[in-house]
Amino acid sequence: MRTKRLLTAVGLLGLSALLTSGAAFAASGDGSEGGGGNGKGDRRADAGTSFRTATAIEQGQKGTADASTGDYLYWSFPADSGQRPTVKATVKLPESASGASGAKWRIDVYDGLRRRQPCMYGMQARPAAAGPVELACTLRTVRAWSDPWAADPLPGTYYVRLTATGLRTADLGQPVTAEVEATSKDIGGSAAVDGTLGAPLVPGTERSPAEPEDGWSSGWWTSRWIWTGAGGILAALAGVGGYTLTRGRRAVSSP
């Protein structure tokens, strides 16, 4: 009985330590809401005018632009596996821009292969108005690996395009100011998959972000490690307990 109690106590202590350390590690490496507390939001970067000249911003950093209606504005940011990016944009128009022109402002997000990624939710397009136009697009969770025929989001560079559609000739050239920001929520082990890409989808241009601050696939830690370790400890305890009970019964039944 002493051996059984000792093994049980050791197992429970090991399980508690594993859960505590795992939770602390996950919290320290959590990238949810993309670096809002590191001062990046104070940095500003003007927009590019194409995929090739897209201005690189980090998650949590605001990109800005002083442009005209009819311009195509581009930014790029890195997103790693396990992250669910959300892109928000604010467009400020002059009072003369409001009215029955039928123009709409919209944001589109493309991955490193320039495939347009659909929004899970968020107001992706809104009519032009005198007040600020607020737009948002939340993508699907970035996967570490996918089949070649699938269009799943993969680790690498993502492009944000902001533009107005349905413009009349009279609407062109009006001054506007725009601001975009990309953040991410760390989904955790529920989004983990078996397999990884050979390399992230990052174009070889100087204006594109090389990698996230912690490096690519920095989110290798997931809650699956906690439950896998806990399951292993419980299985070991169950095995030892079963062996102890069986051995005790044999000792009692022996002549």
Rank of each mutant, 00 (worst) to 15 (best):
R2W: 09
T3D: 13
T8S: 09
S16F: 06
A17G: 08
L18M: 12
S21H: 10
A27F: 06
G29D: 12
S32D: 11
S32L: 05
K40F: 01
F51M: 06
F51N: 04
R52F: 00
A54C: 04
I57L: 11
E58C: 02
A67W: 11
T69W: 06
G70A: 04
Y74S: 02
Y74P: 03
S76N: 15
Q83A: 07
T86I: 02
T86V: 05
V87P: 04
V87I: 11
A89Q: 03
A89K: 04
E95P: 00
A97H: 12
A97P: 04
A97L: 07
G99D: 10
S101W: 08
R106T: 11
R106Q: 14
D111S: 07
D111W: 10
G112V: 11
L113Q: 15
R116Q: 15
P118Q: 04
Y121M: 09
G122L: 05
P127E: 13
P127W: 08
P132E: 14
L139C: 12
V142Y: 09
A144E: 03
D147R: 14
P148R: 15
W149C: 01
A150G: 10
L154H: 12
G156Q: 15
V160H: 13
L162Y: 01
T163D: 11
T165H: 06
T169C: 00
G173M: 05
G173F: 01
V176M: 10
V176F: 01
T177H: 01
V180Q: 01
E181I: 09
T183Y: 06
S184P: 00
A192C: 02
V193M: 12
G195A: 05
R207C: 00
E213D: 10
S217W: 11
R224M: 06
W225R: 15
T228E: 03
G232L: 14
A235Y: 10
G241E: 15
Y243C: 01
A251H: 12
S253M: 08
